[in-house]
Structures are given as structure tokens and as C-alpha cells.
Nucleic acid binder design. Structure first.
Lengths: 203, 203
DNA sequence: TAGATTGTTAATCGATTAACAATC
DNA sequence: TAGATTGTTAATCGATTAACAATC
């Protein structure tokens, strides 16, 4: 299978948001409506939808339920993705409680920190565990993905450790460019870049 | 001036992270080194750098200080960007305390919520204010940008209100596709899309 | 029917990569 | 000098847009 490009993944999630929140009471939606609200070209929308294997009706557009399910199928929302969060600071604790993750197949199973004063405390229903336990818990639960939300000064050191624990995907919320073996996939979450993109006209 | 593309903005912030955290003790860095660590083509790196107006030395590469400052200049880190956060839930409070914002010129001036039980409480050094006060405070402080971190059910309603208050940029952390007049710039922060991009090989 | 909309091909646009002369 | 690296042009690749026949 040809991997779907990042841009297409991004647009498909936007279509999904539209279907879930904006057009949840409609039966049909056309490529023109989607294109209009998201400021895209209508033929681009049709191509994206064709990629999900959905067929429209010539006069009515696409059935919203079909389309929503097809997007979920294409993006793998029903495949559960087990995740551990490392770093129980502001961001880590916010992400533990991020309710939307569940809808997209992301299950946060554990929250780790190094700080003795935090270990043992609860964040929502999650207990903060000592980072030492990651190795054990990740192998028991087959966790391959870590959300990294530690201070920049600790980022590389903690990365080295989680890689040793067998972690294969690191969603990096620190500003540090991490070095890892080629078998590990890093995804750098560049929150500030996103802000600057919004403001670029004023730069 | 031709606006810099989103992709270039993203790469420039990554180069900046490298200079700030990884190569902060080096005097020179070559396009090959940057390309290697970020898995990019070296000529792409040189083009990006040329865009910032930095000249390298044929044998040594680029001076790290020059390059870092030029990126900051190009991306406008020293222009202060005043921001209000609307929604004092987990995410809103995490973002208020996000220390890195300052380094990029983002000043969070106020935090608003609708919930009477939250209003008046403190988050770090910030007081949670009633959303009714946004109009006043944004016009007094010339705040044109809002970070929207409210529940999906309130997203459009609150958006309508902040637009009425004169807000021109909305950084949308909700999953709802917002409708606004064309004079307002929306930037949809699609956190889950980002995760799915990382995991796409496993889809 | 006439109008709206799909599905898809061809054309265009923009971004990346390859190549290489210049030169420190 | 020889080697490394820039700066930049030309070639390629991929993504978007335009166009339109098919058809409900």
C-alpha cells in the first residue's frame, strides 16, 4: 500500500471533524461544501475521498455516515494505539486528560516522572509512576509509543532511556532535536512553528 | 515580500532548535550537518538559509550565532505577539505556563473562562478572568490573538463572541471547524493528525 | 428535461533534489 | 595544493488545480 501523505492525513482529519461536529445532522455532503468551508479546491476533496474508497452519488454528494466511517477506517481510528506519557508537568498532565485521544484510538496507559515528589500522586485516574518502571510496564502492556513531555535539559537523556526500554515511536513535545537509532521514529511536535504559520502575514 | 511557506517556517524553527540546544557550543555548522541530523537534502538547507540572508564560508559552513539571529529575525521572534487564552481547562492552563512561548515572542497576557467556579482563581501568576472582560482587556492591551481551548460544544459560540471583541487571529485547539468572517485568520491545531502522521507506517 | 455533482485525466504549480562551478 | 562546502541553476518530483464527460 502506498503510504498516505501527511497532507492528506491532515485533510482527512479535518473532513472527519466536519462530519462529527458541523454536519452531524446531515445525510449527504458534497465536495463543494467541504471545499468551501475548508478553503480547498473541490477536486482535491474528491480525490481525497476517492482514496478512502467512498463513492458519491452524482447529484447528492457523499453519504455522511459512509464517509465518516471510511475516514476512520483509512486512518485506523479503531486500531488501539497504546501510549505512555513521560513527564508529569503541565503539558504531560494536560495530555493525560485529553479526552479526544480515545476517539482516535489513542489509549494513554501510564504516566511517568522522575521527580520523587510527584511519583505516587494521581492525575485524574492515572497514578504517576517512577520512570524506572517504564521498562516493565511497556513490555507487559506492549507499549511502543511514548509522548515525551520533559524539560529540554532532560530530553536526550530520557530519550536514550526509553529507547533502551524498547520504545519505537517518540512523539516529542520538547524543543530538542533528538538523536536515536534509525529503528526509532521521532515526530517533533513543533507547536511554536504552528503559531508562526498563523501569523506569517504579519511577519 | 513573498510570504515564507509553512514548510520553510517549520524547517527554520527546527534549525533554530538545533542551534539553541544541540550545537550551542559550536562556532560553525555546515548544511551537510544540519541536513544529516534532520534527514533533509543539504541543498534544501542551503536554500532555506539563503532566504534568511545569511552567507556561509566556503570551507567552514555557517556561523552559528549569525544563523541563529538571522532565523530569529526572519521569523520575527523579537516582535512581541500578545495573546489571550480562552478556556482555563487542562490545556488552557498548560499553555499559560508554557515557558517557551516567551522565547518566540509570544506573550500570554490573560486567561479567560466562563465558569464562575474558576473565575478569580490563579494559574501560576495569571488570574482567571470572566470572559465578559475580554472585550475590555483586549482593546486596552491591543490583543488581536486568542488561543481557543474551550470544550467543542462551546467552540463556535465563544468564537462568535471573541470575533465581536475584535480578535483577528484564532489559534484553535478544539476539534471544531470554526466559521468566521474572512477578516479573521483561523489556525486549526490538529494534534491528533500529527500523531497519525507519526504512526502512518503502521496504519 | 436541466442542473448538480461525481470521477478522472491532463495541465499547472510549487517544492525538492541533482549537479556543478566558484572558492576559501 | 587538495578538499570541503557554498550558492545557484536546471531537472525532477509530487501535489494541486482545471477541465470535462458521465450521469443521477
Amino acid at each position: 500500500m502506498t503510504a498516505i501523505s501527511n497532507k492528506i492525513i491532515n485533510r482527512l482529519t479535518l473532513y472527519h471533524c466536519l462530519l462529527k461536529y458541523t454536519f452531524n445532522d446531515k445525510n449527504f455532503i458534497s465536495s463543494f461544501e467541504i471545499a468551501d468551508i475548508l478553503d480547498l479546491d473541490d477536486s482535491l476533496v474528491r480525490k481525497d475521498i476517492a482514496l478512502c474508497g467512498v463513492l458519491g452519488r452524482r447529484k447528492n454528494g457523499y453519504q455522511t455516515n459512509d464517509l465518516k466511517q471510511a475516514i476512520e477506517q483509512t486512518l485506523g481510528f479503531s486500531q488501539r494505539k497504546k501510549v505512555a506519557i513521560v513527564g508529569a508537568g503541565n503539558l504531560g498532565t494536560a495530555l493525560v486528560n485529553y479526552a479526544d485521544f480515545k476517539d482516535y484510538g489513542i489509549d494513554v496507559l501510564a504516566l511517568f516522572d522522575n521527580d520523587p515528589s510527584k511519583i505516587g500522586q494521581k492525575v485524574g485516574s492515572n497514578l504517576i509512576l517512577s520512570l524506572e518502571q517504564l521498562s516493565n510496564i511497556s513490555s507487559k502492556n506492549n507499549i511502543k509509543t511514548v509522548i515525551l513531555a520533559v524539560p529540554p535539559t532532560k530530553a536526550q537523556e530520557v530519550t536514550n532511556y526509553v529507547v533502551k526500554c524498547g520504545i519505537k515511536f517518540i512523539w516529542n513535545f520538547t524543543p530538542v532535536i533528538l538523536k536515536t537509532p534509525p529503528t526509532v521514529t521521532i515526530h517533533h511536535e513543533n507547536i511554536v512553528s504552528s503559531f508562526l504559520q498563523m501569523h506569517k502575514e504579519t511577519m
